[in-house]
Design a protein around this nucleic acid. Structure first.
Length: 551
RNA sequence: UGCCUGAUAGUAUAAUGGUAGUACGACUGUUUUUGGUGCAGUUUGUCUUGGUUCGAAUCCAGGUCGGGCAACCA
């Protein structure tokens, strides 16, 4: 363990618990409900829980909180495990709340026997009404006074399937006037004749979160049970269960959940986007899901770095999306292979180049001296970006225009002599002459130019499709914007562009990270093939010129 | 007219009674065969009012503002 100073409040608690000898090692858990895919908000919790046990010594369980059969599926279980592994974390045990159903049932019987739980025949509406309001105490009903024997029999019958869904519930007998609404005789078990993804039809009664989570923590001997702020009021119940059942005293701690600008981080809302077709799937590259980010080209390292940087505290927060972008750029800059891809091309003809063609070489990554070189075919007919030519260049424009000189990346310096427009007045071809002694790496021309353009040789270029993504929502704080969050969807969040790429791309591995020079970082989509290359833009490069133009 | 929780630059986060620091953002300059990267620098902050103290972001009291709590969801 390193000598670190700035501990967050949870690390502070743990290091005190360790120093006082309360624990020799810690055990945390990551407890998703398998009712959706993991998103970047979960990543924060994952990095926290796994990071804590790695840092202080101990382990982390993966526990599926599968107590509600009507929303949970095996597909989600599998995706969660895959995402966790991809992020680079290993759990010590794979657990399921459903593995504890027998134990939990026994716990409930214990409470009934102690006179601390009763079967209530009221409807959901009646129970809600009898609970009172935050400012008015609740009232009891006749079921609250049932005898232990009667409760035992009724609960046995509930388990045996003798009653319809909703006919009865098991409630804790605590305090109907408690200022904490959660303590006003909370429901422990409900009848649900639904098929469970693991226990199948064995059970028709299922424990509620508040009678499963703390109990599962205790069963696994979790030392520090870390959850988000909205569970603070549940802590009293969590402790009540542990105390009255006499089980392992796990402790709950809460931190504030992640929010990101221009993003929604709610499984329910993300599911809506998928179901209503606003995105193609859970792993649509625009989704803030781990699988979406993976498909878009984010690296696990960049996501972990992000989670490190945002910190852990108890105050509500909304993190700038630009911090996430900074984290990916920083990692990708170090590892991405440089390639040249031209969108919206105009033809560049080199009038004095009579070699026909030659093979040039360019570095794969200027950040990596050992990254090596790649072959780059060059010829007298190239494609360059349309916006790299300006008929009447403005001040500070360092690119091509009549009489202007630029360097073609890893090739030669060229000078624009003339250009040609079509009938509609659109520039089609730019004619240049090159400086033979300016060849990259052996430049003896002594000419200094300000701009360097990327290019591809027209006859060697391969067609590719680029998926360029923008933020999914138009407003910063989507969650607190008025009305339906879907009204704020950015309908321009995906632009598909046809482009021309240098041929090296065809032979590159599918999982390589690329930087298309002057355009951004790209990653091959999982639908991409050698014959039809498709790339997702992970993130743009910082663009100082675009900023300059806005002025 | 309840209970619980929180408040430090634009956004996060640290300082645990003793120099308000760091990162991202923004802005300068510089380097550069990517208007990328790197490097150097500038900018902006303790919610409020009292109190305790030699000294308060930190402790105490009142106020203000934000978030949560009345699912047979987790």
């Amino acid at each position: 363990m390193s000598e670190e100073k700035n501990l967050n409040f949870i690390e502070e608690i743990i290091s005190q618990d360790l120093a006082s000898g309360k624990y020799d090692q810690i055990l945390t858990r990551f407890p998703p409900e398998p009712n959706g895919y993991l998103h970047i908000g979960h990543a924060k919790s994952i990095c926290l829980n796994f990071g804590l046990s790695a840092h202080f010594g101990g382990g982390t369980n993966l526990r599926f909180d599968d107590t509600n059969p009507s929303t949970e599926e095996t597909e989600y279980v599998d995706s969660i495990k895959a995402d966790l592994k991809w992020l680079g974390f290993n759990w010590v045990k794979e657990c399921y709340a459903s593995d504890y159903f027998d134990t939990l049932y026994g716990f409930a019987v214990q409470l009934i026997e102690k006179g601390l739980a009763y079967v209530d025949d009221s409807t959901a509406e009646e129970i809600a009404l009898q609970k009172g309001t935050p400012t008015a105490a609740g009232t009891g009903n006749e079921y609250r006074n049932r005898s232990i024997a009667e409760n035992l029999e009724l609960f046995t019958n509930m388990k045996a399937g003798k009653y319809a869904d909703g006919a009865k519930v098991l409630r804790a007998k605590i305090d109907l006037a408690n200022p904490n609404m959660l303590l006003r005789d909370p429901i422990l078990y409900r009848i649900k004749k639904a098929h469970h993804h693991r226990t199948s039809d064995k059970w028709c009664i299922y424990p509620m979160y508040d009678f499963a989570h703390g109990q599962s923590d205790a069963i696994e001997n979790i030392t520090h049970s870390i959850c988000t702020l909205e569970f603070i009021p549940h802590r009293a119940l969590y402790d009540w269960g542990i105390e009255n059942l006499g089980i392992y005293p796990s402790k709950q701690y809460e931190f504030s959940r992640l929010n990101i600008t221009y993003t929604i981080l709610s499984k329910r809302k993300l599911l809506q986007l998928v179901q209503e077709g606003h995105v193609s799937s859970w792993d649509d590259p625009r989704m803030p899901t781990i699988s979406g980010m993976r498909r878009r080209g984010y690296t696990p390292e960049s996501i972990r770095d992000f989670c490190d940087r945002i910190g852990i505290a108890k105050r509500e927060n909304i993190i700038d999306f630009s911090l996430l972008e900074f984290c990916v750029r920083e990692h990708l800059n170090k590892i991405a292979q440089r390639r040249m891809v031209v969108t919206d091309p105009i033809k560049l003809v080199i009038t004095n180049y009579d070699k026909g063609e030659e093979v040039l070489h360019s570095e794969n990554n200027p950040e990596d001296p050992e990254g090596g070189l790649r072959e780059l075919p060059f010829s007298n007919e190239l494609y360059i970006q349309r916006d790299d030519f300006m008929e009447e260049p403005t001040k500070k424009y360092f690119r091509l225009g009549p009489g202007l000189m630029v360097r073609l990346k890893s090739a030669y310096i060229v000078k624009c002599d003339s250009f040609e427009k079509d009938a509609a007045g659109v520039v089609q071809t730019v004619y240049v002459s090159y400086v033979p002694e300016s060849k990259s790496g052996s430049d003896t021309s002594g000419i200094h130019v300000k701009g360097t353009l990327h290019w591809v040789s027209a006859k060697h270029a391969v067609p590719v499709v680029l998926n360029e993504y923008d933020r999914l929502f138009k407003v910063e704080d989507v969650a607190s914007a008025e009305g339906d969050f879907k009204d704020y969807l950015n309908e321009q969040s995906l632009t598909k562009t046809n482009a021309w790429a240098e041929p090296a791309l065809v032979s590159d591995a599918l999982d390589m990270r690329f930087q298309f020079l002057r355009k951004g970082y790209f990653y091959q989509d999982n639908t991409s093939t050698k014959d039809a290359l498709v790339f997702n833009r992970t993130v743009t490069l910082k663009d100082a010129w675009a900023k300059e133009q806005k002025k």
